[in-house]
Design a protein around this nucleic acid. Structure first.
Lengths: 174, 174
DNA sequence: CGATTATATTTTATACTTGAAATTTTCATA
DNA sequence: TATGAAAATTTCAAGTATAAAATATAATCG
């Protein structure tokens, strides 16, 4: 898993410098660590709280607002597609954890917010979730965790910006 | 997304120390960076190569073997469920990129391996993929990338080991 | 040998995910 | 005030993902 495309024959590796390999390795390690942790969080939520990660993520986002969020804002916050959020909300509504409320002044829009039951349910789950993460990352001190957080934030921002950069250069050479 | 459970009311935060918050923040940043990069890889594969990330991952794993892998090994390598791999392989076989071959001496088992077309297809994709990652992580030098890689490897290993640790202690809880 | 257990894979049911199309409503503006 | 563009959401088709059940074969052991 560590190597992936890194061990392609030389003739193919036109971008294949030491730096390129180091970056590819970093991406694969990032992916591996994320999958490892996410898998355990998923299993924990399923076995101990009879729920799923996407559901938990939605509850977490709604918990941070007092009077609900519009569907579009929720979709943007979680970085998932509109239709995806619709389906998850449908199921949370069926379980009485979330309710849809019309937005006055815009009949296209819908706000969603936690029910009281949804609030208490999430609070229980969130406490257990934080303890789990604390255990999974237990070996890290505050300074180390903060340093890594900063580095990952920079990576995310670089990757995000490289969208426009690339679509700009592919359209017109500036 | 940065805060999630970190801003729960104090009364709920029994594990809520500075370290716990730092670790939770690290996890959320890790997730964000991963999603950011993965989203771009996915879009790139779809638009430029008419394929998907799971398909690419399977081809990558098979490319590293000469005479194919058994389904179970593939599933283990990619850390996805058996049934999931079955479905992806079905589609790759339909596209003539992969072929199933019986395993002599064990009629339960099936090996899968790249067809010649699968090999060349993957080589093209892999070269472009490496260049994309290089661009997405472009801001990083070799030393920085290597340092982060090492830290992420340690995190993945810690999280992996904490499975057994917990099942031992969970007896005393509750 | 025959019964049980273990292994390898597929099938099934359900949920998640995306991109694109469809629907409904709002907004700009001519 | 028409009307066409834009926006918010849902619907849709296809693919991805899981856990659990089913199937088929192999291995073990009495």
């Amino acid at each position: 898993m560590e190597t992936l495309a890194a061990d392609l024959p030389e003739r193919l590796g036109q971008t294949d410098t030491t730096a390129s390999k180091a970056r590819l390795r970093l991406w694969l390690r990032l992916l591996k660590a994320q999958k490892q942790i996410e898998g355990q969080v998923r299993e924990f939520l399923r076995q101990n709280h009879d729920t799923t990660l996407p559901r938990f993520d939605v509850l977490a986002a709604l918990y941070r607002t007092r009077d609900g969020m519009m569907m579009g804002a929720l979709s943007g916050e979680l970085k998932v597609s509109n239709g995806n959020v619709t389906g998850i909300i449908d199921r949370l509504v069926a379980d009485d954890l979330v309710e849809r409320v019309p937005v006055e002044g815009d009949r296209r829009a819908m706000k969603v917010r936690l029910t009281p039951e949804g609030r208490t349910t999430f609070e229980t789950q969130a406490e257990a979730h934080e303890a789990l993460i604390d255990r999974l990352l237990g070996g890290l001190g505050v300074d180390e965790a903060d340093a890594l957080s900063a580095a990952l934030l920079a990576i995310a921002e670089t990757a995000e910006q490289s969208i426009e950069t690339h679509s700009a250069t592919s359209r017109t050479q500036e």
